[in-house]
């Protein structure tokens, strides 16, 4: 009966009276994960030893990239990706603070571009603060933190233009990218820039790996600020990430065993 009025969708009742259906397993996972992170932070704060973390080539190359730009007397470019105020944008902001500090110290021009107007004032403040902290507030040029356009390919065209006009020597692409990733990275390669990219979008990763000198893959983007700071408290949280990768691998193995035994008990438990 096409003319019949559909019954209004009633939301399913809460699981165990309080939980949003389908989130109980997630909730307990998040609680355990948070507790482990907090425990590692507390250990580090108490001065207890924090395990070593592996080397991340892309992050070790930051000094090399800025140093090369300094030697060549050409600018560094930084973009925080497509979106505003997401986890990856915050990670990009932290990386920018480090890159801006390096550029300020070496007196290297830093050009920051964004296609998101919301990001712009924060980016400007981060760069300004970096110049202030190294005692060179007069070297900060407000015009070098630029909002280009809110449209993806208008922004891309703007960045490509900057690469060619300013002869950028180092390009940092940190954050979430879409179709513009390869256009920007290839324009950077054509300009002869050393390029470091970090993107959590798995669809764009192959392009960035192919066209950039270094690529931060997956969680390496989020690890950057902790890794670069070398602060044991921050590094402690990275250990939790590695432990939980192993834990999830274990869950996958258990899930495979249960699935092959024809049991849905495990699946029902984690998706409750």
């Amino acid at each position: 009966m096409p003319w019949a009025i559909a019954a209004p969708n009633t939301p399913p009742p809460p699981t165990w009276g309080i939980f949003t259906p389908g989130t109980v397993g997630q909730f307990f996972f998040v609680i355990v994960y948070s507790a482990v992170i907090y425990w590692l932070i507390s250990r580090a704060k108490a001065g207890m030893p924090v395990p070593e973390i592996r080397k991340i080539a892309g992050l070790d190359a930051f000094d090399e990239a800025v140093g090369r730009a300094t030697e060549m007397g050409r600018p560094v470019h930084f973009t925080p990706g497509f979106y505003a105020f997401s986890s990856h944008t915050l990670a990009a902001f932290s990386i920018l603070a480090h890159v801006a500090s390096l550029c300020a110290r070496y007196d290297t021009r830093l050009i920051v571009t964004t296609l998101n107007a919301t990001n712009h004032p924060v980016l400007e403040e981060i760069v300004r603060q970096a110049y202030l902290e190294v005692g060179k507030p007069d070297s900060f040029n407000r015009e070098d933190v630029r909002y280009l356009s809110g449209y993806q390919f208008a922004y891309t065209a703007g960045v490509v233009g900057i690469f060619h006009r300013e002869k950028v020597a180092a390009n940092f692409m940190m954050g979430w990218f879409l179709g513009e990733a390869l256009v920007i990275a290839e324009a950077g390669a054509l300009a002869g820039a050393i390029q470091i990219a970090g993107c959590p979008a798995v669809v764009q990763l192959p392009y960035l790996v192919a066209s950039c000198d270094y690529a931060l893959i997956g969680d390496e983007l989020y690890a950057a600020s902790a890794y670069l700071s070398k602060d044991p408290v921050m590094v402690g949280t990275l250990i939790a990430v590695d432990w939980f990768k192993m834990f999830i691998t274990g869950l996958i193995v258990i899930g495979v065993v249960f699935a092959n035994l024809g049991s849905k008990a495990f699946m029902n438990f984690i998706t409750k």
Partner: peptide
């Protein structure tokens, strides 16, 4: 890995 890293951050 990305989800775990993002949550830790």
């Amino acid at each position: 890995g990305t989800a775990l890293g993002a949550y830790a951050a």
